[in-house]
Design a protein around this nucleic acid. Sequence first.
DNA 1: GATCCACCGATCGTCGGACGATCCTCGTGC
DNA 2: GCACGAGGATCGTCCGACGATCGGTGGATC
Lengths: 238, 238
Amino acid sequence: MTRSAPAGWTASLALQRERLDVGSTSERVAGLLRTQVLDGTLRPGVQLTEEQLVEALGVSRNTIREALQRLSAQRLVEHQRHRGVFVRRLGRDDLADLCGLRRALECGALREAAERGTAAPDAVIAVVEAAREGERAAAADDWDGAGTANASVHLALAALAANSRIDEEMRGVVAELRLAFVVLPDARAMHEPYVARNVALADLVAAGDLAAAADALDTYLRDAEAHLLDAYGQALDA
Amino acid sequence: MTRSAPAGWTASLALQRERLDVGSTSERVAGLLRTQVLDGTLRPGVQLTEEQLVEALGVSRNTIREALQRLSAQRLVEHQRHRGVFVRRLGRDDLADLCGLRRALECGALREAAERGTAAPDAVIAVVEAAREGERAAAADDWDGAGTANASVHLALAALAANSRIDEEMRGVVAELRLAFVVLPDARAMHEPYVARNVALADLVAAGDLAAAADALDTYLRDAEAHLLDAYGQALDA
DNA sequence: GATCCACCGATCGTCGGACGATCCTCGTGC
DNA sequence: GCACGAGGATCGTCCGACGATCGGTGGATC
């Protein structure tokens, strides 16, 4: 019954490896809390008491603290000494700065790709796919899905630079941005305007005109920031 | 003997506050280790055993672990599960990606400042001062000092965007870059070429020509990256 | 002689419990 | 009405313990 393994089987294994390598307990706890924060189950401002979590998750306080510190390093929660850990509340300024950082990263990445003149085919496909997924979600009235797709588009655009470090930073920034989105009441209003613009960007990228895409992205992001900051300010006042 | 307090005394106190507020034990431990890593006392690759640190610093293993996790989040040390924590060794690719990230941030920041058309006077002064400090250090043959001044120049340039979030990221990136510099044998060779270029950049900024500075910075950084990557590759091979 | 495997020491990951320190709240007294 | 002090909740740090995992060592096997 012995047969030679199919070509490239190690590569497919490597893709699965993360399943095994889910990591330490504290990492898994952190991941769990992270998803709860990002999907809005844990809303900004709520306190994450250590004892609470110990009881709820059945792990030691030590482990909980480690997990919380991870999230704190990712700026998803805020640590106040001798007071506790709270799901981070973005201030208006925080959000503005965050948007500025996002723009610097994303535009920088795309400009880098443009300068190099070419991008990896897979990366281009990822952009197009994400933009299409946004259209699909929008057509299905799934505006949370559209938001996720939108995030994917931006991550994919940044990935055109083929710089894993930029990718990582973008992941962090996009995650943080969710802290703003989860408190906005109207997901549709936040995402609908960008479905078409994402597709247009993806078309430019697919056509290989990265320089044009970079320019378009800059104005796109400025618009989006103004929109987001405005909506967020209203949400905070309400 | 009672006299009224001098005007603005609270402001000067506020500047000192961080002294008191040095924070938790784990933060102080992390800070201590951080400086040791950044000044090259702890060289890339060495293991930081928990028990070692417990003994050396007289704090509990718990606290040590917390401190190490902080450093790990800052990418100054590398955590290998069930093996230990090691001062991070930058690979060639790591360094290349890091440089790319730095360029995206710094150029993005400067472009942002240029677009806005103006920058805070204090921030401009900081750039000029840092560049001058580099000249001073170079004249005194203090090439470590020149390296520090160089870092200050880049931090100050990024600060022109008046985006505290970008500032923070830049601080992290610059710190990480030190992981490369501490293994390079010839500090002078790495810093001397940039003393004059920093001054030239600072002059552009001082003249208010931020757009020109942004363009100059891009080519400057590309040169510097090539230089650094080349030297680093040689250092790794040796 | 090379390969494989079982063992071993070092170190980490997680647990449970303990204690004082600090912060917020609330009630007291002026 | 406001300063002040008591009390409770929670955190920060410490300690000691145990099993798990990793890398290396040395012996058994072919």
